[in-house]
């Protein structure tokens, strides 16, 4: 029994902003820090966490079979090959006959909390039944968004719902940041987003092509000692969750050529 288990929902509202990528990378990064971690794919209609972790061929049972007592929990848990501190549990499969209910998710999350230090729940997009199931099982949350108006608006809706469900603390991860565009003021700044959503920033992830390469391979960036910008950002988020004080990167300092310096001069407030 681990009384200090942290059950964290990773959600965004809008689809395609990087929930599953964050869950996979954060899961691996936490496991590498030596904490026993499980990732729960709450998106049973369109599950993809198995694919990003490279575990798609090893799933036999899901949480649904565990709840129906057709198998034991340890039979349904899929241990990661290279990183045995990390396990995956899919909530269900797309062909399942009965939808899960919020109480089912609470039961499965409680079972996982008995065995693990961290339970990361990969939330489905939207704010309908799938979200309501996932949020019922969560204690705290990480909201991930990109610096785009649609993603920020949807994140705001989700934050409102998290508040009404009493989930806290809620922290923010800003994904797909393009420093050049931010410097040119053609992209919402990190401060704009944190001001509008009124959440503390847990991490800032730069746009990184290597994320696509890693998903192609089914090997999250944090698995190797990759030093690409996104890999560093994910590893830093894991360490901040563990209580380490790691300063956030300043997107304005990422490019330091003459051109970038000119741009910074151009946006200095003169009056």
């Amino acid at each position: 029994m681990a009384p200090t288990t942290r059950t964290i929902l990773i959600c965004s509202g809008k689809g395609g902003v990087g929930k599953t990528t964050l869950t996979a990378n954060l899961g691996i990064a936490l496991a590498r820090l030596g904490v026993n971690t499980v990732v729960l794919d709450a998106d049973f209609g369109l599950r993809n966490l198995d694919l990003l972790l490279g575990l798609e061929n090893r799933i036999v049972y899901t949480a649904q079979e565990v709840l129906a007592e057709n198998c034991r929990l340890d039979q349904a848990l899929v241990k990661h090959k290279q990183e045995p501190n990390l396990s995956l549990l899919p909530a269900g499969n797309p062909r399942m006959l009965e939808w899960l209910k919020p109480e089912d998710m609470q039961r499965i999350a409680a079972m996982l909390a008995d065995q693990f230090d961290y339970v990361l729940i990969d939330c489905p997009a939207g704010i309908e039944d799938g979200f309501k199931n996932a949020v019922a099982a969560a204690k705290e949350a990480i909201v991930i968004t990109t610096p785009e108006v649609s993603a920020v608006r949807d994140a705001d809706r989700v934050i409102g719902l998290l508040n009404t469900h009493g989930v806290k603390p809620v922290q923010l991860v800003l994904n797909r940041v393009r420093p050049k565009m931010m410097a040119n003021q053609e992209m919402l700044a990190a401060d704009d987003v944190t001001d509008i959503l009124a959440l503390p920033l847990l991490g800032l992830v730069l746009e990184d092509e290597q994320v696509i390469v890693s998903t192609n391979r089914g090997e999250p960036l944090t698995l190797s000692n990759s030093k690409t910008p996104a890999a560093r950002a994910y590893a830093n988020i894991a360490r901040r969750l563990q209580g380490e004080d790691i300063p956030l990167i300043d997107p304005a300092k990422e490019g330091l050529g003459l051109r970038d310096k000119m741009w910074r001069l151009m946006q200095t407030k003169i009056f």
């Binding site: 108006v149 003021q185 919402l188 704009d192 151009m266 946006q267 407030k269």
Partner: peptide, 24 residues
């Protein structure tokens, strides 16, 4: 900012981040 003045002088559209913030 200097950029705002330059935009006005050249008759360019202002940077879009501010528009995004206001609309949001």
């Amino acid at each position: 900012t200097l950029r705002d003045i330059l935009d006005k002088l050249l008759g360019r559209q202002p940077a879009s981040a501010k528009t995004a913030r206001d609309r949001l």
